[in-house]
Structure formats: structure tokens, C-alpha cells
């Protein structure tokens, strides 16, 4: 595949992301004239209502879509490289299940205490969810990291991660069983994911977490390329496998855990995008796949977000529904169309 093809593709994708980002701001349940949107974004306007919609709702939402799409794809790519498994994704270590468990415990407990302190709880609702999700994610992360030195190969770690996921799901089921229908519904809503709940202050925290994860990922490009030779070949090449494993886990957990805390779990993006990128560029070189996964992931999640808001209508579909609707066919298509999937990651 020629260099020219790569350059053209990269430029096209970057332009696509920028266009989609603005499209995501322009389209929504309330139609705001183009002229006014530009005024609001670049100066001021007298229409306070529109200004609020753009600056406090749509802009942060589009930014979250951008970050989440990029972040989950990169985290998924790192997991696929570490585990050399096409089904690995950002949630495979159980970190996000930990976040889910944290939210479940918080939601159900708030239900028990909530009758007395309803007002405070509703006020602290979202922030409480975020805090408990981060707490849950960190607990699982610490457990996973403490297990790393005890396992010989990365595949064992993958199995441990999946077991943590099942364990967390089981505990969540128990909590749901003893809970009220209203709270179960509330938790179910969280699991469907939402990009629109993040305000500017929380955006700061989210950005710091995700950007830190990204920075580490970029420093991992070289050792991750060596991992493509197979784990023992990578070791004889000169990578320090334990250090690399730790860093991959920490970086992808920061991204996946941090995002899950603010948006809930967002399905499929993290698994599907790395495959799409490897197919588009016919390469597994992380110098290409890391930045391009970020760009393609952001583009796909922005598309999903635009559709989920059903422009012109006042309903908003859960983001998870859209990503699965998009993601599942894509994964099937890749598996059927690409016969060497097994060895291309």
C-alpha cells in the first residue's frame, strides 16, 4: 500500500472528524440557525437560550464524544495488542465492571438512605455516580496490578480480568435482586451510556485522565510494536515485558475507567475501531494504528451521537444502542471479509 494512499486517507479522516464535530454541535432537537451558532462559538450573542444550548450542552457533549471515541479505541487497541486477542477491548480487564459495581452500590444504597435525604441525593446524583465509579475502577485496577507479577503470561491476565467482570456482574445482580424497580431502572439507564451529563468542571477531570492515558500510550508505541512479534520474541528483542505490561494496563485503565465513570459503558467502539483501522491501513504498526484509532473512534462516536439525538426531535436514544447497531455489523463484516483476522492484530 503506497505512502500516497496513507497520506490521503489520513487527511480525509482528519477532515471528517472536524466536520462531524461541528455537525454534532449544529444538529440537535432545537434548530439554531447556522449564523447564530458561529456567533455563539466565536463571539457573543443576545439569545441566552441558544447560547446555553450550544455552550453548556452541545459543545461539552461533542467534546465528550470526541474524547470517548478516541480514548476507548486506543484503550481497546492496547488490550488487543497486549493479549493478542481480536475480542479484547477496553473493558476486558474488568476495570469498567468495577466502575459499574461502584455505581450499582451507590445507586442501591442511595435508594435505602434516599427516602430521608431525597433532596441531597438528587443534587449529588451524577457526581456521586462518577465518584463511586472511579472508586470501583481504582479498586479493581489495584487488584489487577497486584496480580500482574504472579502470572506468567498475558493470557492468564486476560482470564483473570474476565473473571473479575463476571464477579462484578454477579454482585450487581444480587444488588438488583434486593432493590426496588425504580433503582434498577436508574442503574439500567447508566449502563446504556450517556455522553451528555458532563459539565465543564467535570470535563477538566475527564480530560486530564484521558490525556494522561494517551501520553503513556504514545510512549508505548515502540514496545507495542515489538509485542507484535509475539511475547517471547519481544523479550529477546529487548523490551522489559513486566514494565510494558504495567504501563499498558495503567494507561488503558485510566482511559477506560475514567471514561466509564463519566459516560457509563460505551459498547463496541473499543473492539471494532482497531480492526477497522488495521484493515483500512493494512498495517499493525502502532505508529499508524494508535493515532488513527483515536481519529476513527472519535469520528464513529460523533456519528453515533448525532444520530442518537434524532435531529429535529426531542428524544435522545441511549448511545450504547447506536454504537452496538453500528459496531456489531462492522465486526461481522470484517470477520467475513478478512480471512486472516486471526493473525492481523
Amino acid at each position: 500500500m503506497s505512502k500516497k494512499y496513507h497520506t490521503t486517507l489520513i487527511s480525509l479522516l482528519i477532515v471528517a472528524v472536524i466536520c462531524l464535530f461541528f455537525l454534532d454541535i449544529i444538529l440537535g432537537s432545537v434548530t439554531i440557525p447556522m449564523r447564530h451558532i458561529i456567533n455563539i462559538l466565536f463571539s457573543r450573542t443576545d439569545n441566552k437560550g441558544w447560547e446555553y444550548i450550544i455552550m453548556q450542552l452541545r459543545l461539552p457533549r461533542a467534546l465528550v464524544a470526541l474524547f470517548a471515541g478516541a480514548g476507548l479505541s486506543v484503550a481497546g487497541l492496547m488490550m488487543q495488542t497486549l493479549f493478542r486477542n481480536p475480542l479484547a477491548g477496553p473493558y476486558v480487564l474488568g476495570i469498567s465492571s468495577g466502575a459499574g459495581l461502584g455505581v450499582a452500590i451507590y445507586t442501591m444504597l442511595s435508594g435505602i438512605i434516599g427516602t430521608g435525604a431525597g433532596f441531597i441525593i438528587s443534587k449529588l446524583n451524577y457526581l456521586g455516580q462518577v465518584t463511586s465509579a472511579i472508586f470501583g475502577a481504582v479498586v479493581i485496577l489495584i487488584i489487577v496490578i497486584s496480580i500482574v507479577p504472579k502470572v506468567k503470561d498475558s493470557v492468564s491476565l486476560l482470564i483473570v480480568g474476565i473473571m473479575f467482570g463476571s464477579l462484578a456482574t454477579a454482585v450487581i445482580s444480587v444488588l438488583q435482586f434486593f432493590s426496588t424497580p425504580q433503582l434498577v431502572q436508574k442503574f439500567a439507564l447508566w449502563t446504556m451510556g450517556s455522553l451528555g451529563d458532563v459539565n465543564w468542571d467535570q470535563h477538566m477531570i475527564l480530560s486530564i485522565i484521558v490525556i494522561t492515558g494517551f501520553a503513556v500510550a504514545i510512549f508505548l508505541i515502540k514496545p507495542m510494536n515489538a509485542l507484535l512479534l509475539g511475547e517471547s520474541n519481544a523479550v529477546t528483542t529487548g523490551i522489559e515485558i513486566k514494565k510494558t505490561r504495567y504501563l499498558i494496563i495503567i494507561s488503558s485503565s485510566l482511559i477506560a475507567g475514567g471514561l466509564t465513570a463519566f459516560t457509563g459503558p460505551v459498547a463496541f467502539i473499543g473492539i471494532a475501531i482497531p480492526h477497522i483501522v488495521r484493515m483500512l491501513f493494512n498495517s499493525s504498526n502502532h505508529k499508524i494504528t494508535i493515532p488513527m484509532s483515536a481519529i476513527c473512534g472519535a469520528a464513529l462516536l460523533l456519528i453515533c451521537d448525532i444520530i442518537s439525538q434524532v435531529p429535529g426531535r426531542s428524544i435522545v436514544l441511549p448511545i450504547n444502542v447506536l454504537t452496538a447497531l453500528f459496531g456489531a455489523p462492522v465486526v461481522i463484516w470484517i470477520i467475513i471479509g478478512k480471512k486472516n483476522l486471526r493473525t492481523s492484530f
Binding site: R84, G230, E231, N340, T343
Partner: peptide, 12 residues
Amino acid sequence: IILTERNTVDNI
């Protein structure tokens, strides 16, 4: 060192 492991990706 060249070991017996053959777990290298195809599209490299």
C-alpha cells in the same frame, strides 16, 4: 536469540 515461538502478526 531466536526461539521456537511463532506468534508474529501477518501484516507486518
